[in-house]
Write a protein that binds this DNA or RNA. Structure first.
Lengths: 178, 178
DNA sequence: TGACATATAGACCAATTGGTCTTTAATTGC
DNA sequence: GCAATTAAAGACCAATTGGTCTATATGTCA
């Protein structure tokens, strides 16, 4: 997964994968079929990790505003400095392969939907608790947050400081939370 | 430019470039040196287009809020439906090449800085005109908008409807404008 | 028309691509 | 200890990569 992550699909050559998996050519093809299926497995794992992380951050039993804060803090961490430079397998894949690879399309689309649903859930719980600013509607606010967070990953490629990213996130959340 | 735009750097092979430029192999190398320099030229043109577009949208002689609205409407247009699926050369390049190519790094970084500066300018003019919501600070709001807008390009790869995107943009702007 | 520049098509190149197959080595169960 | 299975190493393959070079047109100007 790591090697696709930091280089992208096309730029990752078989020798890179052999080195990363410490497998021989034969064993790798026996185990995964081909480069493309191996990539999809890596992408699936990446998506699964992201979703379970979100499930704990935005756990309904938790204070929703705290959850949103934790969720955004995670993105701050992943998009600043060296972490930011490393980028995001999902965003990189979306930009590189979406529209050219149906399997990828499905995964990207369903991931964004899943993320948006979780954020919207947290936001509507926050609204029910009276923690949302006036006029904030959970579903559109969720779309805003998803876009913002994915944009952070893009801008994070220029490795901004953690301070800057955190301040930006705080300023955004401040517009939505009472 | 178009061929790099819709396929990315690595996925664009020489025959693609020959077809797109209608040049022979020899003439292409005589005119541009090599694939990499040709790519940088395409990227430069893309960036220049984006900046001049922003300069007219966010022209200081214009009503700043109108300018911001036009700026965001442009992104709505470019990130919904087929336009969205086509993606963005700059974001795709950032994800594919940033951190591996110093020339690209410089261009990506300076583009984001330039965009942020222009948006911040419009926001502070709006603030001076009393059009900003309470507590909105132009510089951090500009960073928010830049992230949001680049995130739109990512999510736009799943080709959302214009209606959805526009509603999202409206909901965001509504948090910042009085 | 004739000399010269330019651009074309495409042969050609070494290196690399993803992928297969064989040979050898290591591990396993008995 | 020995056969049977598994995995490793890497030779090998056709196709493609980015890039060069040569031969042939195609002008263009006197």
């Amino acid at each position: 997964m790591g090697v696709f992550w930091s280089r992208g699909y096309h730029a990752t050559a078989l020798p890179d994968l052999l080195r990363a998996t410490k497998l021989s050519r034969g064993s790798l093809y026996a185990a995964f079929g081909d480069k493309h299926s191996l990539f999809l497995r890596a992408l699936d794992r990446y998506v699964a990790n992201a979703l379970t992380r979100m499930d704990t951050e935005l756990d309904p039993r938790r204070e929703p505003v705290d959850g949103l804060q934790a969720y955004l803090a995670g993105y701050v961490d992943r998009t600043s400095g060296a972490n930011g430079r490393r980028g995001c397998l999902l965003v990189a894949t979306a930009m590189e392969l979406a529209g050219h690879d149906a399997e990828v399309d499905r995964r990207i689309g369903s991931f964004f939907k899943a993320m948006e649903a979780r954020v919207a859930g947290a936001l509507s719980r926050a609204k029910a608790a009276g923690k949302l600013a006036d006029g904030v509607e959970p579903s559109s606010a969720a779309r805003i947050l998803v876009c913002f967070v994915e944009g952070l990953r893009v801008v994070g490629k220029t490795a901004p400081t953690r301070i800057t990213s955190q301040a930006t996130v705080d300023a955004l959340l401040d517009r939505f939370i009472r």
